Simulated assay, not measured.
Amino acid sequence: MKKTQLAAALSLSAISLPTLAMVGTDARSAGMGGTGVASADHITAPFYNPAQMKKFEANDDFGLLLPSAFVGANTTEDLDSKIDQFQLANKELKSAQQAAVPNAARLEAAADNWKVKLKGLDNSGFSMGLGVNFAVAIPNSLMPVNVFSKNDVHTEFLIDIDTEQLDKDDDQLDAGTSNVQLVAGSVSDIGVSVARDVLVPYVNETISLGFSPKIQRLTVYNAFENLDTFDNDSYELSSEYQQKTTFNVDFGASYRPITPVTVALSATNLIPQELDSLNDNGSVATFRVEPSVTAGAAYDNGWLLAAADIDLTEKRLFKDVTKGEQYARLGVEFDALNWAQLRAGYSISMVDGSEDLVTLGVGFSPFGVLGVDVATQVAGDNEFHVAAELRLSL
């Protein structure tokens, strides 16, 4: 799609509200391979594990994340050029098929070129994610509280070609059996996280438990057109979309067997949600918010933080459209006297359809009060993510 169509798709997502997160929800975690279940602090805990709100220093009285933002994209190489080339080939084929005076040589050449260009579009498309998140944390020894907003939007542009066309006679070739689809789904959470230490009877051990009730808004958009009538230069997006508001909840637990070590478990979106969008062509896009369970462990001695998370469940955003996602994540952070941080990580895909990610990040936090974090993630040759955040800790 041209840049103007891409901008239109993203502006629609922003209006409908938010997007798919990359691996990790905030810039600090994104630089550490997306880890956070056992390594998030009291400010970002609601995004990973609300029990982690019990992780704060004695002099922490207030925390603010304002905001954390990210953008990511994964696209077929030269997608715009491939679509333009097919459109030209399709016009030439139609002209040769409909010529008043048949020309077998011209039709054969047009058909051969048409098949090459159509095959070049197989498994083509792009996906984009956008997100903006906020948090206000009030740590205390009794019951820390965090008011948060998490907003994600995911957009998929998909080309589904009919491979049977490649075996048909030249005068029967038709692009109308191949399709172009643009789907976008968003989920926006506004909630309150609370956490408390609980003494486990008989074993005399303390664990931290966290709970995040939240209002959740889902939005899904679905545009569908056959490849024969799709015009890359003048494609117009419909303004129709489906939306619903519901309730959901997250839960988490953290345990510290020894002071530097944390093991944790997080379960998010415990109430599964679905929202369908049916377009004029009869194509249905089902956007899903599924329960997700992740286990994590972290070691933190003050200057070195090493963390590992593993998804125990697979997540699929669009039913029958996108492939699932499930990762094992590793990350480290080196802290220079609480003034500067260097981060790195690696996310290993556990399912087909998603690639491994390499992550890097840096942070600057003068006096340990105002913090600026940036991160980048790369997967393969055509997938790239960036994240940035501003935080205040008093």
Results as ranks from 00 to 15, higher is better:
A96R: 02
I83R: 02
S81M: 08
A69R: 04
K94T: 01
A45N: 10
Q98C: 01
Q87N: 03
M53Q: 13
A99S: 10
A51H: 11
T75G: 10
N90R: 12
A96V: 11
Y48P: 00
L88P: 00
M53P: 05
P46K: 09
Y48R: 00
K54S: 12
G63R: 01
A45L: 05
E92V: 06
L93Y: 03
S68L: 08
P46H: 10
D60M: 07
T44I: 08
Y48V: 04
L66R: 02
S68I: 11
F86P: 02
F47I: 07
Q97I: 03
A99Y: 09
D80S: 13
L66Q: 06
N90W: 12
A89F: 08
E92A: 06
F56V: 07
K91S: 03
K91G: 08
D80Q: 15
L93Q: 00
S95I: 04
D80E: 15
Q97W: 08
E57F: 11
D78F: 15
I83H: 01
D61C: 06
T76I: 15
E77T: 08
G63W: 15
K94L: 06
Q97P: 01
A99F: 11
K91T: 00
F70R: 00
T75A: 11
L65Q: 12
Y48L: 02
S81H: 10
K94W: 06
M53K: 05
A58M: 12
D60V: 08
I83T: 04
Q87R: 07
G63V: 09
D78C: 10
N49Y: 14
S95E: 15
A69S: 13
L88Q: 07
E92T: 03
Q87M: 05
G72L: 12
N74P: 07
